[in-house]
Amino acid sequence: MKNELSAFVDGEAEVHEIGGLLAAMRTDADLRQSVSLYRLIGDSMRNEGSLDRDLLPGVMQALAEGPVVLAPKIRQKAATRPLLALAASLAGVAVVGWLAIAPRLPEPSLIARTESAAPVGVEAVNLARVRSISPQVSGGNMQEYLVAHQASVSSIQLSSAAGHIRTVSAVGGQ
């Protein structure tokens, strides 16, 4: 049954097998669950969709219960297929593993935010009045607040350059 199921998930089952499987799935919850699990495995190997954290217990259980055929054509087709399937599987594992550890660091682009552009996320909460401003024109004495703020949070700053420059860049300059 597992071989048939695996072939079904991969779209490689024979017509006469599909009818029987669909009929069985209507009544068999375990079978439906197995189909979901096999689809998840297939997706992860092909790097489609996200790898569900709950997948692991299912995989381990399936392993404990018996062989899981991930490359259904192995059973009857040409002798080269198992090797290809193994290569694909290993590549799949490699991709999944790589995704987990790969840095997704974008090359930093110094994207200009113009005065007219709304700051981040402003639209989402309708903060229409948020604007970039110099403290001198804020109608208040923001300089001291900013200096006091930066002085108070210096203990968590990783670089004094970043903390200081915020103070003098925001309160003075061109």
Binding site: S44, L51, L55, V59, V68, A71, L86, L90, G92, V96
Partner: peptide, 18 residues
Amino acid sequence: MSRVIAVCLAGGVLAMPA
């Protein structure tokens, strides 16, 4: 062979969080 493949996959999944 199929078990080898499955073990490879499971090994990969297990290795990820670590």
